Amino acid sequence: MATFLVTPRMNPALRARVERAVSSQARARHKAAGLGMASPFASRQGFRPARLLPLLALVVLGGLFAAMMIHERRELEAERSALLREIAEMRAGLPAGHEGLIAETERLVMQAAGEEDAPEIIDPALRAAGALDAVLRRPALYVHAPASDLRDARLVDDAARGSDKDAFLVCLLHPPASTSERDLLAKVRGVYFAGAKVEDETANLRRLAEARLGLAVLSPAFEGSVRAAQDRNVLKQLRRALEKAPVALAKKAAGAELMLVVADSATGARVTLVDLAAKKTLLQVRRRADEIALSARASSQREEIEACSLAVSVRRAVTE
């Protein structure tokens, strides 16, 4: 800044002090020089919008990410709410106390398959004419598996899944005319024991697996998994489990009044019938199938014939 207070003939240092005294720009340059700065002022170049593009891009990306996260969270909560509603709707009609059915039946199964020398039990009421048939028409759960699997809590689930309605069950409820090869073969030949015909004849008995699988997805533990899920993929897996579970059959199984357990071992099959409501063992016997010399025609169905013979032997223990 030009000033009449300085002249070319003045001492340079004096002239600089005078200029600093009267000029803010001069003072700023002096201070900047003392700080090692080339200039105290920002560039006077014109504004360039292109310089804001990286910042704008970050803002846009951040906004998109935030919007995506909000959308994902809303979708997650919507799916969670829908799944929880379905579970609540499926629980409608379940009998009181169904929550403890899986644990209680597992305990009874392990007990039934347990002690090899357990005493024989036949409730006197079963010996009356027609009493056994009347009892076997009540709603019941059924499982037939190796005793070694049924007494191990880690194997009970797989054992129950592998237990279908079989020749033993059919012949216990609807015995053959006799234990001759002809009558036994006529009873089991051509029968698909997991099929519709057998289902119709044994509709009041439900497989234990149906109860375990179906009630598991209606349990507080399963609901807790739904509430805790933080990923839509996890919720989808839980939904598939719910859709796959035999809930309708489990609701029938939950109303069971009895449980029938057949535990096979090298010393024979232990057959146990428990009244779940009365918490009472009605029947506990160990029997073997009658030894039958089968013809070539019948030998291909030996397993079914022996299971049917075993059922007749159990009935005989009660009624004779």
Rank of each mutant, 00 (worst) to 15 (best):
A2V: 11
L5D: 12
T7C: 07
P12F: 04
L14G: 01
A26P: 06
A38Q: 12
S43M: 06
Q45S: 15
F47Y: 15
R48Y: 11
R48D: 15
L52R: 11
L61E: 12
L64K: 05
A66Y: 06
M68L: 13
R74E: 10
E77N: 13
E77G: 05
S81C: 00
R85S: 14
E89S: 11
M90D: 08
G93S: 06
L94H: 09
P95Y: 08
E99R: 14
L101Q: 09
I102N: 10
I102T: 12
E104C: 00
T105G: 01
E106H: 10
A112I: 01
A113Y: 03
E115Y: 05
A118M: 08
P119S: 12
P119E: 15
I121N: 03
A128Y: 02
A129Y: 03
A131P: 09
A134Y: 00
A134V: 00
R138T: 09
A140V: 01
Y142V: 07
Y142S: 04
H144Y: 12
S148P: 00
L150A: 09
D152F: 01
D157N: 11
G162F: 07
S163N: 07
K165G: 03
D166M: 11
H174W: 15
P175M: 07
T179F: 00
L185C: 01
K187E: 13
G190H: 06
V191W: 09
V191T: 14
V191R: 15
A194D: 11
E201W: 07
N204C: 06
L208F: 13
G214T: 05
L218H: 07
S219M: 02
V226M: 02
V226L: 08
N233K: 14
L235G: 07
R239M: 05
R240Y: 09
R240F: 09
E243H: 11
K244F: 07
A245V: 05
P246T: 04
K252T: 08
M259K: 02
V261F: 00
S265E: 07
A266G: 12
A266H: 04
T267E: 14
T267Y: 08
A269Y: 04
A269G: 03
T272N: 02
L273C: 09
K280Y: 03
T281W: 02
L282A: 01
V285H: 04
R286H: 03
I292T: 13
R297F: 12
R297C: 00
R302S: 11
E306M: 13
A311M: 10
R316Q: 15
T319F: 00
T319I: 11
E320M: 06
